[in-house]
Amino acid sequence: MHASPTFGVLAHDVAHLLGGAMLVLSFVLLYQRRLTAMIHVYALQSLVLAAAAAWQGWAQGATPLYLVALIALAAKGIAIPIALRRILDRANIRREIETALGIFPSIILGLALVALAILVVPPGALRESLAFALSVVLLGMLTMIARRNALAQVIGFLSLENGLILAAVGIEGMPLVAELSIAVLVLLACVVCGVCFFRIRERFDSLDVSHLDRAGEAHR
């Protein structure tokens, strides 16, 4: 990456440090094989996101970003991981997950995606932070593709969304950022509820609730 005019300014350096930490955690998520560990890594990534949002809120003097940080801390860093853990504990599913892609190929692909993210982001003041965010988004997608397990795919989705919020907080003066963050949280809550619904029913050895409506088999 070329030396940008913002290099050496404390506000940007700390933002880049936090963005880089999120990117590293995305890689950890990519090669993690155990569901519990994936949940922990996601929680950690969300906490870093909360720090990044709070830092940007201070650096830009933008109050709404503190709300974003609070959401990331309380909902994504604490509530969602706890909910996912409870789903995991209640549902009797295997902790080791199948990967559609081996560790080595997924890391190589992940590196290629980061290179792509750096290439496609045009030069400018926000180049580094956008490249970090875009990498986190792309790695989240790769995590979704590389796993066969539904819960692992959901964690990939959640991490993808962390990248999105990282991009949004990095853009100075972005309007509606707090509102959009809340709207995204609604989406995430629905995803987690959906998983919860699936898992509970998987415990009964069947996804089918035909005991509720046997007549409905052939017809809709």
């Binding site: 997608m141 949004a168 853009i171």
Partner: peptide, 21 residues
């Protein structure tokens, strides 16, 4: 529907932020 469209709209939101920029 939820997961595929969910990923789709999250990407669209990223695009929205870029369009703003």
């Amino acid at each position: 529907l939820f997961i595929i469209c969910g990923v789709g709209i999250v990407l669209a939101l990223f695009g929205t932020a870029l369009l703003y920029l």
